[in-house]
Every structure is written in C-alpha cells, then in structure tokens.
Design a protein around this nucleic acid. Structure first.
Lengths: 207, 207
DNA sequence: ATTTTTGCCATACATATGTATGGTAAAAAT
DNA sequence: ATTTTTACCATACATATGTATGGCAAAAAT
C-alpha cells in the first residue's frame, strides 16, 4: 500500500468497511457525511479521493454507493468474540467482548450470528481445536446431524443434534462415547445455536 | 420462509447475492434489468416486490442499491472449488469446477481468491483435514509465518512460509520434520498463494 | 518562506436510481 | 369461469447521489 492514511481518512475507511460488512450495503457520500457531522458531501468526496489515491479503496464513478475496498493491509477486520466454549465446562460469555479475532473481511457475519472461541482440546474428536472460532447462528432451527452449541446442566457442549419423537440426542463425534439422551422439556438443557461453520485464521496459529 | 420463489425470481435473487458477495456492491434496478435483458426497471421493481413479499430480501425504500438479503434458507451459497491440495501429491485442478461447496454467505470471497479442497490426512499436523476447504489468495504477498500453498517439484504443499536473504524456507507444523530450504530462483518452486483461512462446513461431516 | 496537503464550507448541476401508474398477455389458482 | 399471479412493456416524476468548482484556514512538507 502506497501511503499511510490520516486519522480521519482511517475512520472513514473503517466506517465504510463496517457498513459493508454489517448490513451489506456500502454507504453513500451523504450517509458518510451525516455520520461524521459534515454539512456537505463534497468534504467526503475529497476524503474518498485521498483514500483512493493512497490505494485503499476503488471508486466506481457515477455509480451510487460504488465503493470497493481494496483488501490488502485491510484484509482482516476485528470481530468480537463473545465467549468461550469448551466441552464439559460452563459456557463463558465475556462481559464486554474482551476478546476479538481478526476475521478476514471475506467472512461476513450475518447480523444474528456470533462467534465463540474454542478452548481446550475436548472437542478434538470433532476436529475442532483451541483457538478455532465456531460461527453460531442462534436463530436457525437445527436439523438432524447438525452440530449445535448447547448448555446442558451448566456445561457447554458442541455436539451433533438428533431429534427423536420426545427426546433429543446429542452425539459425540467419537463413536466410543454413548449419545446423550435428553427429554424434550428437560429444563437443564438450553440450545444456544447451530454451528454453521468453523473458521481458523492462519495468521498466528501455534504449532 | 413463506413461499417458494419462481424460476425468474430465484435467478434474480442469485444475481443479487452474487453481486453482493463478489464485488460487494448490491446491484441497482437498472443493472439487474440489463443483466436480464429487460427494457425497463419497473419489471425488476415488480419482481423485487414479489421476492420481498416472500421474505427473501428486505428493501430499503428510496435508498440506492438498498437490497438486503434475508439469510435463512439462503444461508449457504454454492461456490466452486477449483481443485484439490494434498501434501506430497501434485496440485489437482478440476477441469470444469466439478466440485462445489455450500459456503455460508458470511464467507465472502474476494474476487481474486479461490478455494481448494484438502484431501488426505497429510496436513493433519497443521490441523487441516480431508474435506476442509482452504481459502487461497494468490495476489497476497506472503509474510513470514503465513501459511502458503505452493507447488514444489510437482508436489503440492501447504506449509508455513519464511523468507531468508536468498532462500525460502517452508516449515511444517510438526517440529519433527526439518524445514524445506529452497533457493530463491529455483524453478521447481511455484507459489500458488497465501492461505488466508480454513473453512469447514458442519453440514455433513463424516464422523 | 513558500508550497502542498489536509480539512472543511457553499452552491450548482447532471444523472443514476427508485417509484408510481397504467397497460397487455399468458399462466396458475380458485 | 373468474380471479389472481406472473411477467413483461412504456412513460413520467421526485430525489438520491456523485461530481465540479471555488473559497477559506490551519497544518505539514519542502
């Protein structure tokens, strides 16, 4: 990347990336202006010109909201990790999102999903390791065979979900372990969400 | 989701998702019209109204390119997997993108990146397993410690990259293996790209 | 000391864009 | 048989949006 951004330019770039990654629609000049309390779009226009000249974005002339972000230095964006999950232990939710990972900008989070960092190697039979991040969607209805995150008697688990007539079965990936069978209205069971994926950043994996 | 989409509606939705996930800018009505050879935007407008009525998108009135995609059934989008990588074996590139995975819409691919499916367990010392998909960016300059995909003497490898003065070192994750040292201009070495992430779909993992 | 860059303003303009309305025809649903 | 939905067209309109130009002041670079 050619040059460093000034403070303001960096903030504008952050805002653009945030808008694109959260709601999926790049902001217009007017919206950027409003966000930064500018009375005029021309101010934004000039900032964008600077940011583009420095190579961080690419603008599509005449096209509304036509800002593309050039991903290089800005390849990773911080995303809050809201807690930890470790089979056998209680589900830890960080009070103020202390932790965050550098999720690649390619990995856009849907609004309703969240990230949990995996701790301990108790999930290794599911090929999930310490430091990996599971993407959990709490609003998805789990289907048979889906991996789910759940709290069972105050312990967090990541297991395969199977729905029987009046029971729920949680299967381990390791066939040596017997499935856990739960009555459907057992109060000690709380489904957290469906694990839609595992993401592992290759930045600083410990060998 | 409320109702099924018609063929045309589905194609329009796919087009919108494709535009949002590839270049990051939702299409305007005019662009959709052009893509589908409609002479008029109003046609698109009416299709979008139908798609929205069925709950697949949310439109932001008066906002240019203000189409948000409601992710539920459409949580996963197919992405082509262009080949296989298995340490020790040649890099296999599928002739016509035979394979594809259901990548979650959260995982937005930058235009220049591609996916490679991992085969064999020879990468297990890097915690990468059969069926996992590595996201490779060929236009990224690798830094020390980055995982890279490379072809060395016709064999594909995924290893950590280290740049010395006139040599390149490829480190295995397993400390028992000695690093591979390559002269910088050795013709048998071809860098494929930087592995920016590993994604594992939890849909149908074999236990 | 002088020039360039940064950071903001205002006004004006062209057009990109979403929207409204009305019409036609075929297919699907009732 | 009738109504609704689908799938297109055309014309017209309001405004959202990017752009051009000129001006001013402070900070930074030369």
């Amino acid at each position: 990347m050619s040059k460093e951004l000034t403070n303001i330019q960096q903030k504008i770039l952050d805002y653009i990336i945030d808008r694109k990654t959260s709601i999926g629609i790049p902001p217009s000049l007017a919206e950027i202006a409003e966000n930064f309390n500018y009375r005029n779009r021309a101010t934004v226009q000039q900032h964008l010109a600077s940011i583009e000249r420095k190579g961080y974005i690419k603008r599509n002339p005449k096209i509304a909201r036509g800002i593309e972000v050039t991903l290089e230095e800005k390849f990773f964006i911080p995303r809050p990790v809201i807690g930890e999950v470790a089979a056998g232990n209680p589900l830890t939710i960080y009070p103020d999102s202390l932790d965050s990972i550098e999720l690649p900008t390619i990995a856009r989070m849907p609004k309703d999903s969240f990230l949990l960092r995996v701790k301990g190697d108790s999930l290794k039979d599911a090929y999930i390791f310490t430091g990996d991040v599971v993407i959990v969607n709490p609003n998805l209805e789990p289907r048979d065979g889906h991996f789910v995150t759940a709290v069972l008697d105050d312990a967090a688990v990541v297991k395969r979900f199977y729905k029987k007539s009046h029971k729920i079965e949680l299967h381990s990936e390791n066939p040596e372990y017997e499935p856990i069978v739960i009555e459907k209205d057992y109060s000690g069971f709380k489904l957290v969400g469906v694990v839609v994926g595992v993401y592992r950043s290759m930045e600083r994996k410990v060998g």
